[in-house]
Amino acid sequence: MKPETENVIDVRGLRYRYPDGTLALDGIDFRLHAGECAAVFGANGSGKTTFVMHLNGLLRGEGSIEVCGLRIDGSAKADTLAAVRARVGLVFQNSEEQLFMPTVLADVAFGVANMGLSSENAARKAKEALEQVGMAGAAEKAPYHLSAGEKRRVAIAGVLAMQPDILVLDEPTTSLDPPGQRELLQLLRRLPQAKILVTHDVDFAAALAARAVFFERGRIAGDGEIHSIIEQFHWSRGSE
């Protein structure tokens, strides 16, 4: 784990245009400390998911992105991207998309095996990650036999096994019932990694993050203490 004052993410002037010409990100500046947890709010289509896709090189725009000192730009080599992807654990909104291997254990071991570990070591790390999320008993199950909450936990185990420094969770509470959300909250509180939560669930975010950034039409319109951001942008259900 990095020292708490060090920036694990340093984004400056990030701009991204979709192939159809739409400007999705228009000069994003964002920094995240080791161990810090930040919520990302904003209306649908404001650029939140596009932004987090840049953090492990799935999308590449103009500007500068550094993850744990590794620079991702147009000329980033495959081994740099592999190193970045090992450090940034991206948990997708739809767990169904993230779980594609025949068994839970094979799925959780997928990322670790891609890091070059032997199949025995990958399986060991996968088992540890499954224990961490309380899903050790489901190792041999097929992912499609799990409930939505279990799928989400397995998807998180899939990135935890890679021992990332940063967890990026895109709409983590989608399709989770209240007990499932509670379990997820407790799990995320236990994890020491820096976290970015992209979410519309203000209560969930406020229970976990002290800081929030607010996206508006591809720009960061606000960055600060989470409750003041919620108030400033009238971003809770009770806001007038």
Binding site: L58, R85, E97, F110, A113, M115, S119, M162
Partner: peptide
């Protein structure tokens, strides 16, 4: 769309075009 999402999820976990060998 789902296939595209799956491919991105695979890339995000360092997929390089080869699956790990079975035990």
């Amino acid at each position: 769309e789902r296939a595209d999402g799956i491919y991105k999820a695979m890339l995000a976990r360092g997929f390089t075009g080869r699956f790990p060998a079975p035990q």
